[in-house]
Design a protein around this nucleic acid. Structure first.
Ligand SMILES: NC(=O)c1ccc[n+]([C@@H]2O[C@H](COP(=O)([O-])OP(=O)(O)OC[C@H]3O[C@@H](n4cnc5c(N)ncnc54)[C@H](O)[C@@H]3O)[C@@H](O)[C@H]2O)c1
Ligand SMILES: NC(=O)c1ccc[n+]([C@@H]2O[C@H](COP(=O)([O-])OP(=O)(O)OC[C@H]3O[C@@H](n4cnc5c(N)ncnc54)[C@H](O)[C@@H]3O)[C@@H](O)[C@H]2O)c1
Lengths: 210, 210
DNA sequence: CTTACTTCGTGACTTATTTCACGAAGGCGG
DNA sequence: CCGCCTTCGTGAAATAAGTCACGAAGTAAG
């Protein structure tokens, strides 16, 4: 076990894949899995799988691999999947409403608890138990049960302002769909979903490869 | 200029950011920019900016930085942004329809030319000039103007099958929203948009930092 | 209990990426 | 034309990430 060593940033994302796979295996009735097999499922080498897991503990047994029930419990713990994480969403347009309609998040331990927009046509709309609120009221988040995770799905021009407000209301993690590099203080983490950039990676590849 | 050296994978994504920023600057009437400034906008070091650009050419001028018009033209060329890239979309659900409604792609040089679904309620629906077709007819893509880029926005269980079909119809790049690791032959590139994994990175961070 | 086989955990090594830091230009004021 | 300032391009150094390969530990069969 390697409690001390630096953990590569991408290792956490891979942990997420491992967890997903072993949950699938568990559903299929499997109860053990080897690093080789897990590697095949996730398109990684067996060594990568073992090393990633070893950053967090000794989950395996020489000769017989990993017990699924145990590994699952450990990975869930590491990834913070004990509780239901509340999320605040800002921008209920194309993307925002797609997220609100997606039932998968609840099963994954995430729930969009609040959603905000500026558009009076959006405000008041109900999605399941949630009603879209006016973004002007967002600071009411500040007082109570404050979500630490936010999703920004507003137009590019509004994104930085929204981020600033979210940071003030104590959000620590932002998933940003707007095509902007957000400026946030230390201690706040931003991850970008940047579809144009993804596509440009493709057009780059395609233009070069012939 | 460094035509020979291996280019870090992430450099291409950063090029995309640089291009976006200088286009913004151009709109603001600016005509030159330095690596330092570009670094500030993109949250990178000046050295990183210069090194990334230097993989592709000598775009700058000592003492006065980069001329925006020139750099923009070069980056657009590198990223393959001369033509309009046709895209095929499979799965017109929450995500798929959000993509179809997004006008931004056209401005970026990408256009969803075909969209497929299995659901008869989706088939036949019109989005602008596009009409959703039956996924059973997807191989008709095979003959003609075949898109090289595809987006998969179907449920997890269907994703691998769809990927196999797309690969057969000569798609070379797949943007995958389904939470699965797709198996594709060499020469085909997959990039995943994996929202659960993104959120699990957050829950990991939040559970550890206190 | 012993042998043969499997599979983990990990230090050492390799490869990839980023950062540093400096020489060489280019611009500008005098 | 000269010094001074700015900013590039880039090898060299540093850091980060991934792969290798092997000892140790487990399993299973006879
Ligand atoms: N839809 C896509 O496929 C797609 C693709 C790539 C990038 N994006 C990016 O994702 C973001 C959202 O895209 P979209 O298609 O959902 O946009 P959209 O225009 O459909 O929705 C944006 C929503 O944000 C709301 N809004 C605007 N300013 C606001 C503010 N200050 N506070 C709160 N709400 C505000 C608008 O009323 C609207 O409902 C954009 O930045 C877009 O560039 C979207
Ligand atoms: N919506 C979200 O916010 C969200 C979040 C995370 C992940 N995802 C993932 O993105 C994917 C799409 O999500 P969604 O919410 O849009 O799902 P959705 O159920 O709304 O839409 C899926 C669409 O795919 C169609 N489909 C099913 N099988 C098909 C097939 N074989 N060929 C063609 N079409 C087929 C369905 O008819 C449906 O229209 C899923 O894999 C989901 O797990 C979505």
């Amino acid at each position: 076990m390697n409690e001390k060593k630096r953990i590569p940033k991408s290792a956490v994302s891979r942990l997420s894949l491992y967890l997903r796979e072993i949950q699938r295996l568990e559903k299929d009735g499997r109860d053990r899995v080897s690093s080789t097999e897990l590697g095949e499922f996730t398109d990684l080498t067996d060594a990568q799988v073992r090393k990633d897991l070893s950053y967090f503990g000794n989950f395996g047994t020489s000769g017989s691999g990993y017990e699924i029930a145990t590994l699952k419990a450990s990975l869930r713990k590491i990834l913070g999947k004990g509780a239901m994480w509340p999320i605040v969403l800002v921008g209920v347009g194309n993307i925002g409403s797609a997220l609100l309609r997606y039932p998968g998040f609840k099963h994954e331990g995430f729930v969009i608890k609040e959603a905000y927009d500026v558009d009076r046509n959006k405000i008041g709309v109900r999605y399941d138990e949630l009603v879209v609120k006016d973004v002007a009221d967002i600071n009411k988040n500040e007082k109570g049960k404050a979500a630490k995770i936010a999703i920004i799905a507003v137009p590019e021009k509004a994104a930085q302002d929204v981020a600033d407000i979210l940071v003030k209301s104590n959000v620590k993690c932002i998933l940003n769909f707007a095509p902007v590099v957000l400026k946030v203080p230390e201690g706040v983490t931003v991850r970008n979903i940047d579809l144009s950039t993804e596509l440009e990676n493709f057009s780059f590849l395609l233009s070069f490869s012939k």
